[in-house]
Design a protein around this nucleic acid. Structure first.
Lengths: 347, 347
DNA sequence: TTTAGCATTCGTCGAACAAGAGTGCCAATC
DNA sequence: GATTGGCACTCTTGTTCGACGAATGCTAAA
C-alpha cells in the first residue's frame, strides 16, 4: 500500500525484529528493548528514527504516545512475505502428525483428525472442510425401506464419501432394488453432477409412458436421494478454546466463538480465500471483510486435494500473534500428507 | 444433607427468593434488597435472622463478611426439587423447536439439530449424543472395493443409523458380495451384538475347513467392518460460546471449552448421569466429580429414546445461574418429541 | 549519519480515603 | 416469643493523587 520501496535492509531487519518480539511478548516494543537484543549494535536513538519512518509508512502504530510500537496488518503481511519458504517441520512434529492421521476409519474420521491435528500443532483453531463435490465419481447407491413410508438412501462416491439420508417415500423394496440396480449399472463412475442431470433428463423424456422404474426414479430424485453435493458438508472445527487467551474482550470472544460454530460461515470463509486451484498455502491476514467477528484474525490454509481434485480445504485460524513460520510449514505438510494418504494404498 | 426438616414455609419462601434474585442479578443478595421486593412485608432484620439459619443449614454462603448471601449447591438442589413439575413451554418455543427438528435429512442431521435447538432455547450449551448401541437391529450391510487394498464397509441399522468405514483389505468384489449376501440373509434383524458374536462363533467353528466365505468374513470381522457399537459415536455440542458470559476466570473458561471439545469426555459425563432407564429429566447440580473443569456447572438431561430403546442422551449444560424451570420443561419436551419424530411416520 | 541527552507525555501501581452495602446483635415492641 | 429498629463494625469498591517508569521526539554534538 504505502511505498514499499522505502524499505531498505535496515528497515527490514528492524521491522521483522519488532514483529517477532511482539509476537513473543504481546507488548508494544520500544526502541530500548530492541537496541539491547539487536545483532548489530544500533543505539536506541537510531532505532527510533527508523521506527518513526516505519510508522509513517504504515507498518507500525502506537497504542498511545509513549508506549512502544505495534505492528500493523501491513507489517504482518510484509513479515510473512519475506519468510523463508523452505522450512522443515521437526521430526517429532512430523511423526505426531502421521501418527494421528493414520488409523482413520473413514473419510469423515480422517477430516476430523486433520482438524484436530491442525489445532494441536498450531495451538490455534484447526479447520477441515470437505465439500461433497459434484465432481465426485459415483461408486454405488443403495436404497432400503426402513418402515412404513420411510426409505433410507445411501450414496457412496469413489473417494469414499458416504452420504445417507432418510426420505419419506412409499416405494416397495422391490422397486427400490431395481432403481438402485439401474443407477449402479448405468452410472457407476459418472460424476454426481452428470448423473443427476442425466437422470433428470431421462425421467423427463419417459414421462409420457407409464414406467414404474422411471416413476420410482423420479420420486427418489425429487426427494434428494441422489444429492451428494453441497449438502454433504463436513466441517470440523477444533481448538476454539485456544482463542480464549488471545482475545481480551469478552464480548468479541463470544461472537467469535459463535461464528466458529456456524458451519456455513466457516465454509464461506474458506471458500472465499481458498477457492484457488493452486496447491500453495495461503496466508490471509485480517479476516474482517469476510467475517466481521474475525477482525484481526489470521487464516493459514490450503486446499485439500485428493488426486487431482480439490475436495475441500484445511486451515488454521488464529490471532495475528502466532508462529507464522511453524504454522505455515505445518499446514503445507499436512496438505501434502492429506493428498498422499487419501490416495496411496499406503493407508 | 443438613437437616432438611429445619426448612419451614418461611425459610422455603426466602430461600427460593434468594435463589431467584441471585439467578437474575448474579450478585450476592442482601437482606434489604429482599425485604423490599418481598410479597409479605417482612423487615430486613427478620430476613437476616432467617438467612443466618439458612447459612447454618448449609444453604447459603457469604463471599465475605458484609456481602450478601449466595446460594450453595445444596440450595440449588432444593430449589429445583420444589419447582412445579407440570409447566408448559410457550407456544412460540414449541413451534420453534418443531420447526427446527422437522426437515432433518438423516439421523445424524437430526441429532445435530437437536443439540442446536437445545442450545438456542436454553441459551446454554446443547448436547446430543447417540451411541450406536449394540442392541440396534441390523438392517443391511454392504461392502465395496474402493481401490487396491481398500474396502468400504457400510452398516445400516433398523433405526436408520449408517456407519461407514474404510478398511485395508484385499478381497475381490465377488467375495465381498457373497459375504454381504450371507450376512444380510442370515442376520437381518439381529442385534449388532448378537450378530457379531454369532459370526465370530461360526468363523471359529469352520476354521479348520478351507472356506472362502468364512475367510472373508473373518477378515471383515477382524478389521471391525461389522462394528456399529461404541465406535459409532455421534456427539454434538453446540453453544459453547454461551459459557463465555458465565465464567469469569479465563483459565477455567479455557479448560472448560477444551473439555467440551473432547467428545469422549462428554459421552462419559452423560452416561455417568443418564445411564438410567427412566424417562424423566434429570438435573445434576455440580459436575465437578465427573469433570473437574465443570465445577459449578449444571446438567439438565434426559435419555434419548426411540421406541423402547435408549439410543443416547440429550442435555443442556450451563452455569448454576440458569433458568431451571424453562430449561427443564424444554429438555423434557424435546426428549418426548425426539421419540415421537424418530418413530412416527410423521417425519 | 549516528548517537547522547533531555524534556515531555502517558499509562500503571500503590496508598489513602470516602462511600455504600450488609451483617450481627441488642433492646424495644407487638 | 416472634418481630423490628437501631447501631457499631466489617469489607468491598471506586476515586483521587502522586511517584515511577517506559517511550518518544527533538536538538545538538560526534
Amino acid at each position: 500500500m504505502q511505498p514499499g520501496s522505502s524499505i531498505g535492509e535496515r528497515e527490514r531487519e528492524i521491522l521483522t525484529a519488532i514483529v517477532e518480539t511482539f509476537i513473543a511478548t504481546g507488548e508494544p516494543v520500544g526502541s530500548r528493548t530492541l537496541a539491547r537484543s539487536n545483532r548489530e549494535g544500533l543505539s536506541s536513538a537510531s532505532i527510533r528514527n527508523v521506527m518513526a519512518d516505519l510508522s509513517d509508512s504504515g507498518f507500525l502504530e502506537q497504542p498511545h504516545t509513549s508506549a512502544g510500537r505495534i505492528p500493523t496488518t501491513e507489517a504482518y503481511r510484509y513479515y510473512v512475505e519475506q519468510l523463508s519458504g523452505d522450512a522443515r517441520l521437526s521430526p517429532s512434529d512430523e511423526s505426531m502428525i502421521q501418527g494421528s492421521l493414520n488409523g482413520a476409519a473413514d473419510v469423515q474420521d480422517f477430516m476430523e483428525r486433520t482438524s484436530h491435528v491442525l489445532s494441536l500443532i498450531s495451538k490455534n483453531v484447526g479447520v477441515a472442510v470437505a465439500v461433497g463435490g459434484t465432481k465426485n465419481a459415483l461408486e454405488h447407491v443403495y436404497f432400503s425401506r426402513l418402515g412404513d413410508q420411510k426409505v433410507l438412501a445411501v450414496v457412496v462416491t469413489k473417494s469414499g464419501l458416504v452420504r445417507d439420508r432418510v426420505l419419506r417415500l412409499d416405494i416397495p423394496q422391490g422397486e427400490l432394488d431395481s432403481a438402485a440396480r439401474y443407477i449402479n449399472e448405468n452410472f457407476r463412475g459418472w460424476t454426481m453432477e452428470a448423473m443427476q442431470t442425466e437422470i433428470a433428463r431421462r425421467v423427463e423424456r419417459e414421462r409420457s409412458e407409464y414406467d414404474r422404474l422411471m416413476a420410482s426414479l423420479e420420486q427418489l430424485y425429487r426427494q434428494g436421494a441422489l444429492e451428494a453435493d453441497d449438502t454433504t458438508l463436513m466441517v470440523f472445527v477444533e481448538g476454539a478454546a485456544n482463542l480464549v487467551a488471545g482475545e481480551t474482550d469478552r464480548q468479541r470472544l463470544q461472537e467469535l466463538l459463535k461464528t466458529l460454530e456456524e458451519k456455513q460461515k466457516i465454509v464461506d470463509l474458506l471458500s472465499a480465500y481458498l477457492h484457488t486451484k493452486q496447491e500453495a498455502v495461503r496466508v490471509v491476514i485480517g479476516l474482517d471483510d469476510a467475517q466481521p467477528s474475525m477482525r484481526n484474525l489470521v487464516l493459514i490454509g490450503a486446499p485439500a486435494r485428493s488426486g487431482g481434485d480439490v475436495m475441500g480445504s484445511l486451515a488454521v485460524i488464529g490471532p495475528t500473534r502466532m508462529d507464522y513460520q511453524h504454522t505455515i510449514t505445518a499446514v503445507s505438510y499436512i496438505a501434502r500428507l492429506f493428498d498422499k494418504v487419501l490416495n496411496d494404498s499406503s493407508e
